[in-house]
Design a protein around this nucleic acid. Structure first.
Lengths: 180, 180
DNA sequence: TCTTTACAAAACCTATAAACATGTAAAGGT
DNA sequence: ACCTTTACATGTTTATAGGTTTTGTAAAGA
């Protein structure tokens, strides 16, 4: 990916987060990245293409962020805790990220951040599944993975206010469904 | 609750479901119930009061619906399955119910159907908690209750398309967290 | 207790024109 | 090749001003 492309994606992500899809101006994206409006069109075709690209880019960014944290800790449950904390903190920090991950508060963004109606974070199920498979080879891990992601998503959308408690709850369910 | 009050709530619920908060006309609510517009104001003060009352009414209706199904089956897990099916079917049937229960697709309704930001269905946690307490006296049931409701809500908001599978998943997690 | 009538204030259409943004194209510069 | 500038048709917002509808309140009457 070229430097300019990346710059454009970052500018667009910023503006998208503060102004939303409707308030996003192609010329503003261009000038922030120091290029002409035409260049944006050359790169992404049109506004939809640009926003779509931002969504894909952000999604990749967070899925790899989660995958990285899952790999970092040798203990599978501590790794999950860490990945969940990462997701939670990113979601709190950035309204756009929140929209991309969960599909909530997306308003006009929604067409871009769901695939077959499911928010993109559900791709995280595959990441978690892979993680569990690595630690428990030969076991059925799909159910635990999906349950964990659904539960984590629930805590993202409707926080109890107690982050540690939420992480404990998710990990506890993960352990207990693996033991069963 | 007087007959007229109930009639007004039903009329308002109907109209709210089809026209939304914005399209709801006080005079239409009145004429459907066969009373004057003024009577509606006497009863509920203003439009907000009316809609608030509808939300509370619908909530009670569904919480008692859930409680009833939980009591009907002697097997605690079959009872949960039945209560979940009830909730799922009602949510599919009625857009307004869906909004009241989950807080999704609520648009201008949202201020009325959440309490401290949480959709009213979270009151169901208390109902489920009571249910589990009855079947497992002396045990800690709060965690299972909350987990179950969060998971069920997740399946309501993001259905996998497989209702039976969803019910199985919820009940399975409930059992396994009680066994632990 | 409910209805009718009346009314001010607010919210809502509707039509109009001006300003702005999008998307496409062509010519020119590095 | 890649980006910029300029230009233009098309579609969308925005602002304005009017007329209408709806809300919310009040008072008198069945």
């Amino acid at each position: 990916m070229s430097d300019i492309t990346e710059l454009l994606l970052d500018s667009a992500a910023d503006l998208l987060a503060t102004r939303g899809f409707h308030g996003l101006r192609m010329i503003e994206v261009a000038s922030r990245a120091g290029v002409s409006r035409q260049t944006v069109y050359n790169e992404f075709g049109n506004k939809e293409g640009l926003v779509q690209a931002v969504a894909v880019h952000k999604t990749e960014e967070y899925l790899t962020g989660i995958a990285t944290r899952l790999k970092e800790d040798p203990d599978p449950w501590e790794a999950m805790r860490s990945a969940f904390r990462f997701t939670f903190e990113q979601t709190e920090k950035d309204r756009l990220v929140s929209a991309v991950l969960t599909g909530q508060n997306a308003e006009d963004l929604l067409p871009f951040i769901t695939i077959r109606g499911h928010p993109i974070l559900f791709h995280a199920t595959e990441v978690v599944e892979q993680h569990l498979s690595n630690h428990f080879p030969g076991r059925h891990v799909r159910f635990t993975a999906e349950t964990t992601v659904r539960l984590a998503l629930s805590h993202l959308l409707m926080p109890s206010g107690d982050l540690d408690g939420a992480m404990d709850a998710v990990v506890r369910v993960a352990r207990v469904t693996m033991d069963a």
